[in-house]
């Protein structure tokens, strides 16, 4: 079987198209590259959706935690603490149990015992908590002068948040937020590894790498292939975030762009 055929058969295997059975012999490099690459679809799916939806909640959590009103502050603090304070796989375990019991009383939750919905919810809350803490740190570091200047111009309330607080917060948080995005993509490998069951051998990149390591008993080929894909993915994430960073800082003179890192490099 030529490599082109292999790609045709297995490139979309992870989402249920193509050959029904996984390769059972040969285990050529082509098969390994194709299937592990196919699994990357899930890693990207989880990563991108969780990151985008998590961003919204993260801003809400950060504003909540910085709020003077305990009614907003306390819940935000607890969500951030619980989701930042516990390992992801324990969150997966409890989420799976919770969705199982919910499913028995409300059929609406039927989809959530499957990874595509259930794990996404956990990853969404997880990244929202981590990013929320980063944004909260950034909120606290916004230079006083900026806020006072805004008030002096008569910019207040929602307008002030939209035009001053929010963009400055993003700018300050961006390096750390980039790191969080990288970690989130890494975390997506845990979904099938120690969280949710894999249906009909549709899994993520690590699932297929594990499959090949299991069949060939040689971990030195599939895992480096997985590493290779992740290096590409991380490079693209870093590249995209750098583009966004340039846009966020476009008003600054070129040499000042580097300097705008008031609380530099806090990871996650």
């Amino acid at each position: 079987m030529s490599c082109v055929e292999t790609i045709a058969d297995y490139a979309l295997r992870s989402i249920g198209f193509g050959e029904r059975l996984l390769p059972r012999e040969g285990y050529t490099l082509c098969q390994q590259f194709t299937l592990i690459g196919s699994g990357m679809i899930w890693n990207i799916y989880f990563g991108v959706l969780a990151l985008c939806s998590g961003f919204v909640l993260a801003v809400a959590l950060a504003v909540g935690k910085a709020s003077a009103n305990p009614l907003f502050r306390k819940p935000a603090e607890w969500v951030i603490f619980v989701f930042r304070g516990s390992p992801l796989f324990i969150q997966f375990f409890f989420a799976y149990l919770l969705f199982l019991s919910l499913k028995n009383s409300y059929p609406f939750f039927g989809a959530f015992t499957a990874a595509w919905a259930g794990a996404l919810v956990v990853l969404f809350l997880n990244t929202a908590a981590y990013s929320g803490e980063i944004f909260y740190g950034a909120l606290r570091s916004i230079p006083r002068g900026d806020m006072e200047a805004a008030e002096a111009y008569g910019i207040t309330g929602w307008n002030k948040f939209r035009r001053i607080t929010f963009p400055t917060m993003l700018r300050l948080a961006w390096p750390a937020y980039t790191n969080e995005a990288i970690f989130l993509f890494h975390a997506t490998t845990l979904v099938f590894f120690s969280g949710f069951p894999a249906w009909q051998q549709r899994g993520d990149a690590l699932y297929y790498a594990n499959y090949f390591a299991d069949k060939t008993f040689n971990p030195f080929v599939p895992y480096p292939i997985l590493a290779f894909y992740f290096i590409l993915l991380t490079l693209s994430v870093v590249g995209l975030f750098a583009l966004a960073s340039r846009r966020l800082n476009r008003h600054l003179p070129r040499e000042a762009r580097q300097k705008l890192r008031l609380r530099p490099n806090f990871l996650r």
Binding site: I182, F185, A187, F220, L226, A227, F230
Partner: peptide, 19 residues
């Protein structure tokens, strides 16, 4: 820095110790 940061720690652990 670039390589080790890019690879998920779990994938690293699965083959690195034996190596």
């Amino acid at each position: 820095i670039a390589i080790v940061r890019s690879v998920p720690d779990i994938a690293f652990f699965l083959f690195f110790v034996i190596a």
